[in-house]
Simulated scan of single mutants.
Amino acid sequence: MASVGNEVLLIENNDEAFVWTQRNEEILIELREEEVLKGNKNNTTFTKQSWKHITEELCARAKRNYSDMQVRNKYNQLKKKHKDFKSLLKETGMGYNAATGEVSATDEVWDKLIWVNKSTKIFRKKGCKFYEKLCSVYCDTTTTGSNAHYSTQSPSNDGDNDDDDATSISPSTRNEESGFD
Rank of each mutant, 00 (worst) to 15 (best):
K112M: 12
S151K: 12
M94K: 07
K48H: 06
A98V: 06
E57P: 02
N65D: 15
K38H: 03
W20H: 12
T173F: 06
E132R: 07
E102M: 12
F46E: 03
S154T: 07
S151T: 12
D158G: 08
N43V: 15
F123D: 00
K112V: 04
A166C: 05
N76A: 10
W110C: 04
W51H: 08
D84R: 05
N175C: 07
K129M: 09
N14M: 08
M1H: 13
F123Q: 00
K81V: 05
V36C: 08
N43T: 14
N40K: 13
D165T: 12
E12C: 08
Q70G: 04
L89T: 06
C135R: 15
N42D: 07
E16H: 07
T44M: 09
S172F: 05
K41I: 04
H53M: 11
Y75G: 01
A62Y: 00
K86D: 08
K83M: 10
A99R: 12
P171G: 08
A2C: 03
V4E: 11
D158V: 06
K52M: 14
N42W: 12
A60Q: 14
L31E: 02
T141C: 05
F180E: 15
P155N: 07
T55E: 12
E102G: 02
S104Q: 05
A98W: 04
N161T: 12
D84K: 04
L9E: 09
L78Y: 00
I11W: 13
K41S: 10
D158Q: 11
F123R: 03
S172R: 05
E16D: 13
E25A: 04
V19Y: 08
S67T: 15
Q77T: 07
I54H: 00
A60Y: 13
N73P: 03
V4I: 14
Q153I: 06
P155M: 06
E33M: 14
L134I: 01
L134S: 04
D111S: 15
Y75D: 05
E91Q: 11
